[in-house]
Amino acid sequence: MSLYILCTVLFAVGLYCLLVKKNLVKKIIGLGIMEYAINLFFILTGYRTAAEAPILDRELAITNFVDPLPQALILTSIVIGLAVTALMVAIAVRLYEKYRTFDINEIRRLRG
């Protein structure tokens, strides 16, 4: 319960960073923090006390596993997050090349 709330606080930090900061790299960092919080939240919901990692063993017949479904969903989401981060970095680099700044207010002013 308290872990869920801490995870939400982490998300809120990322959200605040995304809303308030004017620097494009800071905005990318805020989105990254939000992504971490969401990934962690999924895995927290799938956890069961005193359960094992979802990998079968040759000798021991374990039946008490944590929920493997959120793990399978998040595994693909992590790699997508990396590709999306790379896309945002590429766009930010383009903007820097054109306007020589990462500040979005400055970019808006220069564009006229």
């Binding site: 319960m1 872990l3 869920y4 927290l44 919901t45 799938g46 956890y47 069961r48 006390t49 979802p54 039946t63 596993f65 944590v66 929920d67 493997p68 479904l69």
Partner: peptide, 16 residues
Amino acid sequence: LPLFGDSLMRIGSQYV
């Protein structure tokens, strides 16, 4: 939500 450490595993148990 269900409490932490107490996942329902409605679909996951089938997969397991």
